[in-house]
Amino acid sequence: MPLLEIKNLQLEFGTVDRPHRVVDGVSLKLEAGKTLCLVGESGSGKSVTALSIAKLLPSPPVRYVGGEILLEGRDVLKMPPGELQKIRGGVVSYVFQEPGASLNPVFRIGAQIKESLTYHRPEKANDAEVIRLLKLVGIPAPEMRLKNYPHEMSGGMQQRVMIAMALASQPKLLVADEPTTALDVTIQAQIIELLQSLCEQLGMAVLLITHNLGIVGDIADDLAVMYAGQIVEVGPVRDVLKNPLHPYTQALIHSVPKLGRDVTRLTTIPGTVPNLGSIPSGCRFHPRCPKAQPPCSTEPPELMTLANSRQVRCPLWDSPNLNQPANGSL
């Protein structure tokens, strides 16, 4: 049994008359101790998918329209409130993009970690455990650091504190939503390295969300690519990066600037992620797709399962690239 299995999840915002389906049939699987990366441009529905794992999105405004979220085999969407409270920050912990915004500015960081311990493991709510956690996340001189206020730490150090707090409950699943997006590339490399070593040391599973494909190769086992509320490609990370099948995945990979590449223009994905109110008919990516054929604008493609644990939502995945890059509206 996988640690986490999301089956055909459907989420809506908006009114019942004019619903905005922001997650439309997402299925994902994550085994204990493994790392799954979820990538896609802003607005594709990564965060709402991640937040729904512990049912953190209040309803309303969101409506959980359909699907299941099985955590250790039990459906989170059907859990009574008391039980939900227990899995939040228990089995599942979260780390978000802005560590500065998630930490309380008026308390010392030691006290904040201790509070998290008091809640989940009261027998361990002491300085020794706080110091052990700070050491685990690579904070130097933890005995001194626990007396710091958040503003006395750099962004990278604050993110390490957030990870220490998330680890306080000894979660089986850590959901990290763009944990390095606000950080320098040097610090980003450190945090990714840290997450990777924590996975190995603690046997914890990680769902890592990012829009940057440049950081997934080092850490992920599997990679899922999301576009406009749907999964468009899933597979083992190496295979997907080496041989992406969906034109969107290919475009995302090509848009990462590469050092030492002597080109006058960077490759872009023309246009923008569609608005919620105006999801294109047929394949949602077709207006931006260099491979698009007439049927793509009318027939919504299914997610097809291929050999080697790969899935792709494009019937043209094995046809060669015939067209010139199409309708570059921007």
């Binding site: 990066l241 080496k242 990979i253 990462v256 050092l259």
Partner: peptide
């Protein structure tokens, strides 16, 4: 050396 690289 910290620049993200896609190629695994």
């Amino acid at each position: 050396s910290a620049v993200p690289v896609v190629d695994p």
